[in-house]
């Protein structure tokens, strides 16, 4: 337990300078992009003369030198002040908090789907290596690895929404529902299916490939042969001995790819009009709404850091050897 606590504290100590670094670099890079939010406000007719534009820039702090702006921002972040979105007339933290649940739901369901589908297919393919079942698994993996997720999303939409009329095209809720808690949850679940598949199947394909390779590797190791020699049934070998060892690389990947899943969610949220931070980020980038872009970036960094920490903890629990190495 002590070792685990030490690990967590160690990671947190590393996290703070990393975060400051991310904020400063991102802030400078984003500020270098030509055009700012005042240009955007001017474009829709809200600003009609040069004096108003200058006054607006002063109001949003855009007239200060870049290092000053960056410093002010970093100080603000550590006071949990993520700035103000001039386009929405709302604090950035409110905007992000309101969008976060939808994105978490989509990410969680996609990761869950990808892990279950990927692990099952990978394991199944490896246990039936070089048969038609294995081949079928490979076809699945190649197809969904190669196909862009937005295209998969559109194709799912054509089949399940337009042709079969089974599922809604987009959005998160049906608006005409006068709903009880249960029917609302059911409604959201129906809307969740297609985006989850579009986002999750890509990662399922990766996990299937990794899982298959890991199972094949592990199943050649001595302890598996030993178990087999002892007369342990094949099913028990597969689950107790092989799966637990083979799943480690998959877990590593999940940790590494949380950031990618978030990036994928940006695209998928566009396609399915899922009201998460992906759509918020997309609009904010187009509008040069720097405070919102920064807020989402910081949030994503924190999420990736937290996921990596969780992966480390899982390692700790799944593979006692890692614990021993740390102790020695």
């Amino acid at each position: 337990m002590y070792a685990l606590l030490k690990l967590i504290l160690n990671r947190l100590a590393h996290a703070i300078p990393t975060l400051v670094g991310i904020i400063v670099i991102a802030f400078i890079l984003l500020s270098l992009a030509p055009g700012d939010v005042v240009d955007i406000l001017a474009a829709d007719g809200s600003i009609q003369d040069a004096a108003t534009a200058a006054a607006m820039r002063a109001k949003f702090g855009l007239d200060q030198p870049l290092p000053m702006q960056a410093l002010n921002y970093v100080i603000g972040v550590f006071q949990f002040n993520f700035g103000y979105s001039p386009i929405h007339s709302l604090p950035v933290s409110d905007l992000i908090v309101s969008r976060l649940p939808a994105t978490f739901l989509l990410m969680a369901s996609s990761i869950l789907l990808s892990v279950i589908v990927g692990v099952v297919i990978g394991l199944y393919a490896a246990l039936n290596v070089r048969t038609w079942k294995d081949f079928l698994g490979s076809v699945f993996a190649i197809l969904f690895f190669a196909a862009p997720s937005f295209w998969v999303g559109l194709m799912l939409m054509v089949v399940f929404s337009i042709k079969l009329e089974l599922l809604p095209v987009s959005g998160m809720v049906s608006m005409r529902i006068n709903a009880t808690w249960f029917s609302q949850a059911l409604d959201i679940a129906r809307h969740l299916i297609l985006p989850t598949c579009a986002l999750g199947l890509f990662y399922a394909a990766i996990y299937a490939r990794v899982m298959r390779a890991a199972v094949l590797q592990v199943s050649k190791l001595d302890f598996v042969e030993t178990a087999r020699a002892k007369g342990v049934p094949e099913g028990a070998i597969a689950f107790r001995h092989i799966l637990r060892n083979a799943v480690l690389p998959v877990i590593t990947l999940i940790g590494l790819q949380t950031g990618n899943v978030m990036a994928g969610a940006v695209v998928i949220e566009q396609v399915f009009s899922w009201p998460g931070i992906g759509t918020l980020l997309f609009d904010a980038v187009l509008d040069r709404n720097l405070p919102v872009v920064m807020g989402v970036l910081i949030l994503s960094s924190v999420i990736v850091m937290v996921t990596n920490l969780i992966v480390d903890i899982l390692y700790f629990i799944l593979d006692p050897r890692i614990q021993l190495e740390k102790h020695s």
Binding site: L154, M157, V158, S161, I162, E165, P168, V169, S170, Q270, V271, F272, S273, T279, F282
Partner: peptide, 14 residues
């Protein structure tokens, strides 16, 4: 709000 033209077409069609 429906940002993708393809999705708009699908939603109208469905």
């Amino acid at each position: 709000f429906e940002r993708s033209a393809n999705t708009r077409a699908a939603a109208l069609e469905a």
